[in-house]
Design a protein around this nucleic acid. Structure first.
Lengths: 230, 230
DNA sequence: TCCATCGATATTGTATGCATTATCTAGTTA
DNA sequence: TAACTAGATAATGCATACAATATCGATGGA
């Protein structure tokens, strides 16, 4: 939502307040400004963003449908928290979708897309040797997005992006785990070479491994404060 | 530990008007009462369902997020139509998700689930010989749902169900295609035996074939009136 | 002390009215 | 006739007010 390509033109598609709010809140949740568990009071949000409760409520309903917040009738909304089990389920689903995209990318990326993917991967190699964690994290997002797009299916692309958004609030510190950068890059290497070679089964398997490895790395840094514990 | 006697248990989770409306509209869209392209006028819906426009707008926004309707700022909402190309993309995505669920089912269904799947499949065999198209369609939904659930992942389950919902308005007449029932059942046979045997790769492949075959069957009956044409 | 009950308060749910924008129609002009 | 403009009409966007419900704290009894 935040990177909608044609949002700024005074064209006939100007966004409504509810849409702007939904984007803003989503961004704040993903970036950690609003941490999981935060109560989203309608009156408070309305005041904070200078609008009435009506567009706030519409935005909240939109976010609830996409899973970024939890809403219960007459009980209000909170930024979605997850149990460890549910987080694991999200990672499994993410792994399956990413693996599917990798498989399809191996089958249907055009030469330019393959070239770009390789270039991106090479660039990330340099970031590893520089231990540039933040830059690597940014490039990593681009890398995975390239594979979602390489599948050439807008429905899967949309789902992959949504799933990634739901996981983002929980995985910010992932690349801080010791040695994680190198391992990530090595796993990417397998994915990239399989995609370039058109080996769809290898691409699937390599990506599945990679995402599970991400989950493990995540477990290590333990962002318990964001995860419901009982 | 006991609950307070004044607590109205299930009643405390009573749905709001917006939620009821969203469900009702979704049902009407899926069942074809509201055909793709139908304009969803807020005032009209409010009057028809005896509520004000506020909950109507919230329900519409919810449906828009799930893809069942198309909304454009200040232009109102319509029941989602799709181009042929987009429909094909939906089928591809559905195929990939279903294939994934089939693969996971082969890996993680418990003996009882496998037994139930086999029983369902056998029952559908009888419906084929009776040419009971409607009963087969119902059982078919149950069959596919069983495989989504067999994957033991709520996130994938949710996505599969949503995707199926989005396709439902366009595939009602599918089993009317000549010989479709037999072919469907034969394809299911391959899926079921692979799942029962725990052959995850075969299950994946068989399900992928099946869904593509469904798409072809759909093409034959051509519900052009629901599909944007240009 | 613990629990239940009852208000007081805050928050959500819904209706309504007005403002803004899109759409439609009639009239005008080339 | 076709195209364009302007006003009328209708629809959506938003704010506000009120109603319904949940939450919290005080009170009183066991």
């Amino acid at each position: 939502m935040g990177q909608s390509p044609r949002m700024n033109d005074a064209d006939s598609a100007r966004a409504t307040r509810a849409e702007v709010l939904a984007s803003t809140l989503a961004k704040d949740i993903i970036e950690g400004v609003l941490v999981p568990g935060t109560r989203l009071d309608e009156h408070g949000l309305a005041e904070r963003y200078g609008v009435s409760r009506t567009p706030v409520r519409e935005a909240l309903r939109q976010l609830a449908t996409s899973g970024l917040i939890d809403m219960r009738p007459r009980r209000g909304a909170v930024v979605a928290s997850v149990t460890k089990e549910r987080l694991s389920e999200l990672f499994v689903a993410m792994g399956e979708i990413e693996a599917t995209c990798a498989r399809l990318s191996a089958l249907s990326m055009n030469p330019m897309e393959r070239k770009r993917l390789q270039a991106l991967h090479d660039k990330m190699g340099k970031l590893v040797s520089q231990s540039s964690e933040d830059a690597y994290a940014d490039a990593n997002r681009t890398f995975h997005l390239a594979i979602y797009e390489g599948a050439h299916n807008p429905v899967l692309l949309d789902f992959a992006i949504r799933l990634r958004r739901r996981l983002d609030p929980f995985r910010r510190a992932q690349f801080r785990a010791p040695g994680r950068l190198e391992r990530s890059h090595n796993e990417h290497e397998l994915v990239v070479s399989a995609i370039i070679a058109g080996s769809c089964n290898d691409a699937h398997a390599a990506m599945l491994d990679h995402v599970h490895s991400v989950e493990d790395a995540f477990d290590q840094v333990k962002l318990d404060r964001f995860v419901e514990s009982f």
